[in-house]
Amino acid sequence: MSEQSLAIRKFSDLANPTRFIGLAERLLPWFSGLTALLFAVGLYLCFTTEGDYQQGETVRIMYVHVPAAWLSMMCYTVMALSALGTLVWRHPLADVSARAAAPIGACFTFLALVTGSLWGKPMWGAWWVWDARLTSVFVLFLMYLGLIALNRAMDDPGKAAKVSAILILVGFVNIPIIKFSVEWWNTLHQPASVLRLDGPAIDPEFLRPLLVMALAFTMLFLPCTSRPCATKSGAGG
């Protein structure tokens, strides 16, 4: 067997639920420790950097709002990839991964909406406006809740997996709408200032804590999904 096929074999072995459970249980303490460390460093940077000359202290809301918003979209993207795995390969881990990510995505979307509202009131003078960015993120939140409810409402897990996967893939159209809404429409929400083709338009002083917090939130996603994946796939695989 060639080295390349051995490497592919090693990777595809992870699709075996029993092996996945073993690996997840070994890695979970490391992921959890790293997440706690990143949060400690991130929070230290959040509260030790200077306030913005225009926004003052409220700029600190950005360090939780932006990572939560990024993660809300990343969770749904992971769910869409899992939905493909359910429909194309009918792999049990794919459905388990989508089901595990839905409540986590709902939490991050809720956080993005609430912290955005708390940032909007002092900066815009309004808790909420029905502009394209805010509305499309609110639709994402409703989609997460709908998918969680659908999975709980159906008795047949196989049928629930298939219906959920189709709905997730149809709903994925909302992700580029969220991302580009600030460019396609006239919105009160500002355009992208970090993920831009010409590089971040934000001062490195603010970018540093933002990236550390984004990494901490991403690391939080890993143990939060791999733990339910490991336990939920137990009976199914």
Binding site: I61, V64, L111, V114, W119, K121
Partner: peptide, 9 residues
């Protein structure tokens, strides 16, 4: 607003 954001988070 900052305290409320971090508290809710």
């Amino acid at each position: 607003y900052v305290i409320a954001s971090y508290g809710i988070a």
